[in-house]
Design a protein around this nucleic acid. Structure first.
Length: 448
RNA sequence: GUAGAUGUAGCUCAGUUGGUUAGAGCAUUAGAUUGUGGUUCUAAGGGUCGUGGGUUCGAGCCCCAUCAUUUACCCCA
């Protein structure tokens, strides 16, 4: 048979793993610097934990896991209606936030709040793969749960800024607030069409104001309301001075005013003094699909590349409430490691990784030399030098080619002559230089 | 779920209005060099042209179906 892997999944070869680890390590270091602690949760969750948290589209994209047992065995023969929960009661996690909320509720008695955690694990979505979209991909989540303070939002933005600075990427950070969007819907008296309106507004960057107009019209929004929505879009993009205008627009909506107030505090009190303002912009058209966001929403896009968002998140006031722990607010963001990889790759921004695998290869001449070398390899390894002995006694040409291919910088040649004198001939692969009559200790010294 | 594009060697791709035995580069293996890689030279292996059907004297090329991959929409990291 021809081997293959499922659609939207990938193998990662050594070169790719070097690069991926560079991204993970960078992100991890920053997370730890701000005091976040790592957790992991299982790949699969109970289906009831996952369903209903991501909107209708999200539910469709859940990977479900078939039960094992007699019911499933019978499916082939049976023609009766089978209920989903009889054949599947587990699913692969769709993101890391919902499992985290579940974790917090289950472990509430051992957690000290506010709890700052990070989590780097794969998630799965039964989506159609395309550019920057995979069915299995890694998210790097940081969340603070159990604190309402806007300082948490600020900290997340600082983390975003630091991560992408370290990775050498130019990005645009956009902020909005769900309360503002809720306020808008309240003001125009279309609260029940919240999702429709918000998804229409979200498309502004793509389709422009005429496109938004059309979509709102198609959804049955009246003309007057549409004008108000467009006015909102106009004043809520790009500039901080519009706060006044937003207040005026939201004056009849308590939740809307709360949203404006939060954004005002965030920008005026924190982001501007921290010089994070022009980097971070207010964008009233930012919506984000996930259902559970209630306050700030954040999205990061890479500049100069066509790629969806590479980082996103927001505040969720009642995600733990679903699992029985109300009144615990959390805020968090998620870095999309695979998309960051694609962007860095496209821009050629990966640094050269110096080879930290094998430093020294012992050539294998034959039975006697093998045994002789085995001791030397152990000795070298005991000194913390990564080294290996070529496993077969093939032609030297092949062994040197192996070293070359694997970018091993030094080769130790120990044949009859060297065994007699108990010395090593060391070849520097980069220069081609050879050093004869070295003792093994002298060889070790060269690596220190 | 909707729409388009593409399937030829391990990889990237040529292949003329349909015409004999389907090519190149890279990669692989072997040799030039029996204790020496990266450069160079020589040679070799590797293909039911995605699959099935049709048109034709003749199909990698045209038609239909099907599968796979991929891009866009929707939604998202």
């Amino acid at each position: 048979m021809k081997p293959s892997i499922p659609k939207g999944t990938r193998d990662f070869s050594p070169v790719e793993m070097n690069r991926r680890n560079y991204i993970f390590d960078t992100i991890k270091k920053v997370f730890q610097k701000y005091g976040y602690q790592q957790i992991e949760t299982p790949s699969m969750e109970n289906l009831e934990t996952l369903t209903g948290k991501y909107g209708d589209e999200g539910d469709k994209l859940l990977f479900k896991i078939l039960n094992s047992g007699p019911v499933v065995d019978q499916i082939n023969k049976s023609e009766t209606d089978i209920k989903l929960n009889e054949i599947s009661e587990k699913g692969l996690r769709y993101d890391l936030t919902v499992p985290f909320a579940r974790y917090v509720v289950m472990h509430q008695h051992e957690i000290t709040f506010p709890f700052k955690r990070y989590q780097i694990q794969p998630v799965w979505r039964a989506d159609r793969p395309q550019k920057g979209r995979y069915r299995e991909f890694y998210q790097c989540d940081v969340d603070v749960i159990g604190s309402d303070s806007l300082l948490n939002e600020v900290e997340l933005i600082q983390i975003i800024d630091e991560v992408f600075t370290r990775l050498g990427m130019e990005v645009t950070i956009k902020i909005n607030n769900r309360k503002l969007l809720a306020g808008l819907c309240e003001v125009i008296g279309e609260m029940d069409k919240f999702t429709d309106i918000v998804t229409a507004i979200d498309k502004f960057d793509k389709v422009g104001s005429n496109g938004v107009k059309q979509e709102l019209y198609d959804k049955g929004i009246n003309k007057q309301s549409i004008e108000k929505v467009l006015e909102f879009i106009k004043i809520s993009k790009f500039d901080i001075i519009v706060i006044k205008g937003l207040k005026e627009l939201m004056k009849d909506s308590e939740i809307g005013l709360k949203g404006v107030e939060e954004l005002e505090t965030l920008f005026i009190d924190y982001l501007v003094p921290l010089k994070l303002f022009p980097k971070t912009i207010l964008d009233g058209t930012l919506a984000r699909g996930l259902n559970y966001y209630t306050g700030a929403i954040i999205e990061v896009k890479a500049n100069n590349v066509s790629m969806g968002s590479i980082c996103g998140g927001g505040r969720y006031d009642d995600l733990t409430g679903i699992f029985g722990l109300p009144n615990v607010s959390g805020v968090g963001i998620s870095f999309g490691a695979d998309r960051i990889y694609d962007v860095l790759n496209e821009l050629g921004k990966f640094p050269d990784f110096k080879n930290d695998s094998t430093q020294l290869l012992f050539v294998n001449f034959g039975k006697e030399e093998e045994t002789f070398c085995l001791n030397l390899v152990s000795k070298v390894r005991a000194e913390g030098i990564n080294s290996e002995l070529y496993p077969d006694h093939t032609k030297l040409k092949k062994q040197f080619a192996y070293a070359d291919d694997k970018k091993i910088p030094f080769v130790a040649v120990i044949g009859e002559e060297e065994m007699k004198t108990n010395t090593v001939t060391l070849k520097d692969m980069a220069s081609g230089e050879q050093f004869k009559n070295l003792t093994i200790d002298e060889v070790i010294k060269r690596f220190k």
